[in-house]
Structure formats: C-alpha cells, structure tokens
C-alpha cells in the first residue's frame, strides 16, 4: 500500500512542476507518505480507544466506592481500590452457584455435542449410504431458519417431556449443531482417502480409524468447536430464562441481569454490579488470550455469535 501512495504522491507532486528536481519530488512524496501513515495510526488508535473504553470503565468502576462512583466529576482512577466489591458481588449475586451450573451445562453439552458431531461428520465424509446428499442438503437448509421458530415448539415439547427446570432441558435441545457438523465434515474431507483404504486393508474397523486417525488430524477444528460451544453456554440467556423457574437452575447470564445488587439505601450498587460483570467476563477473556487462533478460525466461518 505504501508504495502506491509513494508513486501516487510522486505524480501529484510532479505534474504541476515537472522541471523541479528529483530530490524535491522524493522529499515531498516522503512527507505525504509519513502523513498518511500517521493519519492511519491516529485513526486506528482512536478506534482502539473507543473499543477498549467500556472495558476500562467496567474495571475502574468495579474498584470504586459508591460515593466515588457517584461523584459529579468522574475520577479516571479509583481513589482507593475496593476489592471488597468483588467479594460482595460474588456472594450477593450467588455467582458461585451460577458459575458451577453454567460450567456443568457447558461441559456436559460440549462433550455430548462433540461425540455426535464427530460421528455424523464421519458418516457424511467417509461412508456411503442412500440419500446422503439429500440428507446433507436438507440439514444445511435448516441453518437458514431463525432459532426463535424452533423455540416455540421446543418449549412445548420439553414441557410434555416433563423436563422443565432440569439440567436436561438446558443441554439436550441444542446438542446437534448443523454448522459444526458442516465444519468438521469439510475438515474430514481434506484427509486423503488413501489413509482410509490403507486402514481398511489392514483390517482396521471404521470406528477405530475414526478415533485413531481422523479425530487427531482434525483436532484444531474440534478445539474451535469446543470453544464456540462453551461460549454459547456461557452467553445463553433466552432459553434458560424460559425453561428454568427455580434459582438453583439459573445460568450465569440470567443470574447476572436478574441480580439486584443494592446498597443500604436500596439503590443499585453500580461498583458491585460492574464487579459482577467483570467476573462473568473474565473466563471469556482468559480463553481468548490462550486460544485466540482457534476462536478466530471458527468465528470467521460462522457469522453467528454464541
């Protein structure tokens, strides 16, 4: 890009006064190039500040006293660091129970979902059976339909099954994701068929081949799926709100938005609320820091959040 700017600048500077020396041309083009680069960095840094500001405000607010938070002239660094907000938020919003619930639902549904996805993707990628292409196209077509359309009937179905207010209802309806099956099938297809035929000649069973060869080779995609699925459990809000009534079954997002963190006067305790928000956001950030590559890989293909 910069070379283009360079040449563009050269023509622009050169056309009005072609008789000027080559030195002047080079100098003015260099100045323009520096200006463009400086402008680019200024724009990017400004946008980065806007993107980061809510995180910064969340963290410093969570460390303030309510009195400081309510100051008419805001402080940009807490006068005294109030870690006690975190302790209070954790106990008052019952975050411990919510964390455990969400972790349990997230882990169980991820494991089951992975098993189902692997088996299905393998069948579509390697096995031959009648109606394979029609079935696969039909499954892909369901991805067009907004989830809300399923929710209405699923709400009735789980009611009929008597699953209301259980872990089952939070796990089972979302175990199959056509998108994950698609993603993994594409990955499985890239594994050369010769490996499969060689394994067949050696008398290896399909199942053994799948676990010993295909799963290890497709590990990056499986990690992407795991992270996206866990993030989905962490961020799910509407379905748990519909199907859980008791406090013990709540997931983290419901508990967070529903929690009333009040001060002594019965008004919202914002620093405590921000502390709760920070604690709920922290695991996502940790996962992101360590597994950034896999998240970005999975996300760039999905277009779906959570």
């Amino acid at each position: 890009m910069t070379e283009i700017v360079n040449s563009a600048a050269t023509t622009m500077a050169g056309s009005p006064a072609p008789q000027r020396g080559a030195n002047a041309q080079v100098r003015s083009s260099r100045i323009l190039r520096m200006l463009v680069t400086a402008g680019t960095y200024a724009f990017l840094l400004f946008m980065a500040l806007l993107v980061l500001f809510p995180f910064y405000w969340m963290i410093i607010s969570s460390l303030k006293t309510t009195e400081e938070y309510r100051l008419n002239v805001p402080t940009f660094w807490p006068q005294s660091i109030q870690l006690v907000n975190y302790v209070n938020a954790f106990t008052e919003a019952n975050l411990g129970r919510l964390f455990l619930n969400t972790a349990y639902v997230g882990i169980v549904s991820t494991i089951l979902s992975l098993v189902i996805t692997i088996l299905t993707a393998f069948a579509f990628a390697r096995l031959e059976f009648k109606g394979k292409n029609i079935l696969f196209a039909g499954m892909l077509a369901t991805m067009m339909i907004p989830g809300e359309l399923f929710t209405i009937t699923n709400y009735q179905t789980v009611n009929t099954f008597g699953w209301m207010d259980t872990y089952t209802v939070l796990i089972v309806p979302f175990l199959v994701s056509v998108f994950y099956i698609y993603l993994l099938r594409q990955n499985f297809m890239q594994i050369p068929n010769e490996l499969y035929l060689a394994a067949k000649v050696d008398g290896t069973s399909d199942f053994k081949y799948l676990w010993k060869v295909m799963v290890p080779l497709a590990l990056p995609t499986l990690i992407s799926i795991t992270i996206l699925k866990m993030m989905g459990a962490w961020n799910s809000y509407v379905w748990p709100r519909l199907v859980t009534k008791s406090e013990e079954m709540r997931l983290i997002t419901n508990g967070l938005r529903g929690a009333s963190l009040k001060d002594a006067n019965g008004e919202t305790h914002y620093p405590m609320q921000m502390a709760a928000v920070a604690m709920v956001s922290a695991p996502l950030f940790l996962v992101f820091i360590f597994l950034r590559k896999y998240i970005m890989h999975g996300v760039s293909r999905s277009g779906i959040k959570g």
């Binding site: 995180f55 993030m231 997002t253 967070l256 709920v280 996502l284 959570g306």
Partner: peptide, 12 residues
C-alpha cells in the same frame, strides 16, 4: 479490535 466479540452481550 476482536475483543468485543468474546464478551457476553448482556454483561457488556
């Protein structure tokens, strides 16, 4: 610039 993606839309 990717950070807002890994957030909980209710929390933020």
């Amino acid at each position: 610039f990717f950070l807002p993606y890994v957030t909980n839309s209710i929390a933020i």
